[in-house]
Structures are given as C-alpha cells and as structure tokens.
C-alpha cells in the first residue's frame, strides 16, 4: 500500500479526515454499511446511536484497531493502512477505548506507554524519558492522574479514564477518537473529561466522540452524526437541537 499519497495540499488538509464507503460485517451482523464522513480540525463531532449501531466499529476502523471489509480512511491527505494501529498513530490519530484498554496489573506509567514504549536500540525501556514525557503531558492537560507508579487497579474509575485519555494525548494527536469516554463515571468526573475535550478542541485537535447520551452531545459537540444498524442516518449541526430532538434522532421513532 502506497503510504503518504498526497491528494490535497498539506496546509489545507491539516486535521482533515475523510472516511469513504466503509463496510464491516461480523459473522451475521453488518456493523458498518457503506458509511462515509468528512470532518475538519478542531471540530467536535458526536457519533450517536444505540447499542449495536456501529459507533465503536467505526472508531476502531479509523484508529486501525480493525480493518474494514471495504472502504478507506484518509487523514490529512494520506490514505491509512487498514487495520494498522501504529500507522494511524504515526499520522496523528489516537483512540481512547471504551474500557480504557488498560492492564490492571501494570503501573500508570506503563499503561500510558502501552505498545509504544520509548526504548534503547537493544529494547530496554527508557524509564527516565517515559517519566518526563508523562509528567509533561499530565501538567499540560491537567489530568487527574495520581502517582505514575500506582497500579491501575488501585485507581478510581475517573482516574482510569484519565489514564486512557492521557495515553492517547501522549501521541500529540490531531484527531482524537473517544468511545464512550464518560460512561460509568460520576457527574463531576464526567464534567472534568468534557472540559478536557473542549480545551483540546480549542487547541486545534479534532474529536470524534461516540456516545448515546444526549446531554454529552449538547455539552461537547457542535455536530452530530447518527448511526443506526450500521447506516449513517443523520448528519446535522447541534445548534438549536434539544435533548428530546436528539433522543428521537437516535431511536428513529419520529
């Protein structure tokens, strides 16, 4: 696969995501049915829909966690290798998984760098460098992450979400994909995460946010895309929409 084919001038394309004709099916179900989408930098786009609508699958395809059956993802004018996490990361796309994708038995520091540890040529961890990068990141985004040496299983739910978010931010992404970032959190912790997202958006990071909460869409997003049974049903501005409008759009009971 040709890596880095520029189809648009780089400057115009910064943070620009093109998702074209994605199809992905599992044994008996179609998770994505010919979905296309374009987003720009510093846009917060909510991807809404009920359970099994295909939201998570869409983010996983964009982040390279899974490969689509057909269709492609293009970021900043470069076609991404399908099903290749590190390729997506190197192009500036990072994902926060719904369950955090954390190793409970490992330290916060190791979880932050999971799969992308800075190492010496012989493969030994550069712990000092890891620590320094982690501290800088936590300082910069004011994340509620306690000691780097704490084990993840000893953290609260909100702290664990912060570690998962912090891992994505370490890559200094220009596009951040979040799968239900506030699920199973208390109201205060939810607000902290939303505030973090809005700050990131102001700094020019594009955000795709999977959610089924109308409140979260209203609080964070400017634009909402609704998926239902793998199909893109609606693509609308959030302006002027009410809680109940969103609920109706997501359930499809007009």
């Amino acid at each position: 696969m040709a890596k880095g084919v520029h189809v648009t001038a780089a400057k115009d394309a910064l943070g620009h995501l093109i998702v074209r004709n994605l199809v992905k099916s599992y044994q008996t179900t179609v998770a994505l049915d010919n979905v296309s989408l374009e987003t720009d930098s510093s846009e917060v786009v909510a991807i809404a829909g009920g359970n099994g609508a295909g939201k998570s699958t869409m983010l996983k395809v964009i982040s390279g966690t899974i490969a689509p059956d057909s269709g492609f993802v293009e970021f900043e004018g470069c076609r991404l290798q399908p099903g290749h996490v590190s390729d997506a990361r190197s192009h500036g796309i990072a994902m926060v998984f719904q369950d955090g994708a954390l190793c409970a038995d490992a330290s916060v520091l190791e979880n932050l760098f999971l799969g992308a540890e800075p190492v010496t040529p012989l493969g030994f961890l550069r712990l000092g460098r890891m620590r320094q990068l982690a501290m800088e990141m936590i300082e910069r985004y004011q994340l509620p992450i306690p000691r780097l040496d704490a084990q993840v299983k000893d953290l609260s739910g909100g702290q664990q979400k912060a570690v998962a978010l912090g891992r994505a931010l370490l890559y200094k992404p220009r596009l951040l994909l979040l799968d239900e970032p506030t699920s199973a959190l208390g109201v205060r912790e939810q607000n902290t995460i939303i505030t973090n997202l809005l700050t990131l958006s102001e700094q020019g990071v594009g955000i795709l946010l999977c959610t089924h909460s109308p409140d979260e869409i209203l609080a964070a997003a400017k634009r909402v895309v609704v998926l239902r049974r793998g199909r893109l049903m609606t693509d609308a501005s959030v302006d002027g929409l009410s809680r109940s409008d969103l609920a109706v759009m997501m359930s499809g009971n007009a």
Binding site: R89, D99, A101, C103, A104, A106, L114, G115, A116, L125
Partner: peptide, 24 residues
C-alpha cells in the same frame, strides 16, 4: 523489569485485548 519484550509478556498476560488494541 526493564526490557520491552518481557514487560509486554506481563501486559499481554494481564489484558490480551488491551495489549492487542494498542498494537502489541
């Protein structure tokens, strides 16, 4: 304690799904 390969054995054992999601 110090080598990436061996640390990854611990990580993949602790949560194989998470390790795979992160490109391990």
């Amino acid at each position: 304690r110090r080598h990436r390969l061996f640390r990854r054995l611990y990580h993949a054992g602790s949560n194989p799904g998470a390790a795979a999601s992160n490109g391990i």
